[in-house]
C-alpha cells in the first residue's frame, strides 16, 4: 500500500521528491526507539543471562544466536536448554511450547483489528510478538504523523535485535563477565507496571484490569509459579465472557 502511495507521488515532479525512507521509515524509527529503551535494559540482562546459561551448559554461542533469532520467546528458550539436555522427545517439546506460550493467543486476538491492512509487514509483526513487543505496540500512543506499520515493525525489530545480541554476547563472553547487575531485570517488571497504569488511566471502566490482577494472583496462589498461566487465562476468559453484557453497556469501554 505504501509503495503505491510513493509511486503515485513521484508522478508529480515539481517538489524534489523525498525518498520513502526519509519521509516514513526514519521518523518511525525515531518515534519507536525511546519506547524500546526499557526493553534494551531488560533484554540485554536476560539475554546475557540466557547466553551464559547455555555457555555453562556446554553449548556454543551458535545455539543462543539461532534459538533467540528463530524461537524468540524468552522463557521458552530457557526451557529448551533443559529439553536439549534430556531425552529426545520432539512431540513433548511441541506440546510444552503450546502450553507455555498460550498467552500469545490473547495477544493475537487483541491485535486482529490493529494489524489489518499492513500487508507483508503483518507477517513479521505476528512472528515477533513477544510479551514486551505486544505491550508496547498495543499501548503506545503513536503520533498521528508517524506511519503506524513502520512504528510497530521498528519496535518489534529493535526488541528482537536486543534479545539476539544480548544472548549471543552472553554465549561468547559468558564466562568472563563479572559486573554486579543483580536486580537489573526489574526493568521488565517496572515496564509492565507502567503499561498497566497507562491502560488504567485510559479506561473509564477498570473491571478488566482488576480482574487480570486478582484472578492471576488467585491462580498463582492455588497452582504455583510454574503452572498458573493457563488456569489464569481460562478463568479470565470465562469471567470476561460472563460479564460481556454488563461491560458492553459501558459502550466503548473507554478503549479505542
Amino acid at each position: 500500500m505504501t509503495s503505491q502511495e510513493v509511486a503515485g507521488e513521484q508522478v508529480d515532479p515539481t517538489p524534489p521528491p523525498q525518498s520513502h525512507r526519509v519521509r516514513v521509515v526514519v521518523p518511525a524509527l525515531k518515534a519507536a526507539f525511546p519506547f524500546t529503551l526499557p526493553i534494551f535494559a531488560g533484554f540485554w540482562f536476560l539475554g546475557l543471562t540466557y547466553g551464559m546459561y547455555m555457555n555453562s551448559s556446554g553449548f556454543s554461542f551458535l545455539y543462543p544466536l539461532f534459538m533467540s533469532m528463530l524461537i524468540y520467546a524468552g522463557s521458552m528458550e530457557f526451557i529448551t536448554v533443559s529439553l536439549l539436555l534430556g531425552a529426545f522427545n520432539p512431540v513433548q517439546a511441541f506440546l510444552m511450547t503450546l502450553m507455555i506460550n498460550a498467552r500469545h493467543l490473547f495477544y493475537g486476538l487483541s491485535m486482529l483489528e490493529r494489524f489489518k491492512g499492513l500487508g507483508p509487514k503483518k507477517v513479521y509483526l505476528i512472528y515477533g510478538m513477544c510479551d514486551e513487543t505486544f505491550s508496547i505496540n498495543f499501548s503506545a500512543t503513536i503520533p498521528p504523523d508517524i506511519d503506524r506499520g513502520w512504528f510497530m515493525v521498528w519496535v518489534t525489530l529493535l526488541n528482537q535485535l536486543y534479545w539476539v545480541s544480548g544472548s549471543t554476547l552472553g554465549g561468547i563472553f559468558g564466562s568472563m563477565i563479572h559486573i554486579n547487575t543483580e536486580g537489573l531485570d526489574f526493568a521488565m517488571t517496572a515496564m509492565f507496571v507502567v503499561i498497566f497504569m497507562e491502560q488504567w488511566m485510559r479506561d473509564r471502566n477498570h473491571t478488566s484490569s482488576l480482574l487480570g490482577l486478582a484472578l492471576s494472583l488467585g491462580c498463582l496462589l492455588i497452582f504455583g509459579a510454574d503452572n498458573f498461566i493457563i488456569p489464569s487465562m481460562l478463568v479470565i476468559l470465562a469471567v470476561l465472557t460472563l460479564l460481556r453484557g454488563r461491560l458492553e453497556k459501558y459502550g466503548k469501554l473507554g478503549i479505542d
Binding site: L109, S135, F138, V193, Q199, S208, G212, S216, L237, I255
Partner: peptide, 19 residues
C-alpha cells in the same frame, strides 16, 4: 472483537503478576 477490547487490560495485570 469484544475479547480483543477487554483482554489487554486483564493481560497487563497477568503480566505484572507473572513478573
Amino acid at each position: 472483537q469484544y475479547l480483543g477490547k477487554v483482554l489487554p487490560a486483564a493481560v497487563f495485570g497477568l503480566l505484572v503478576i507473572y513478573c
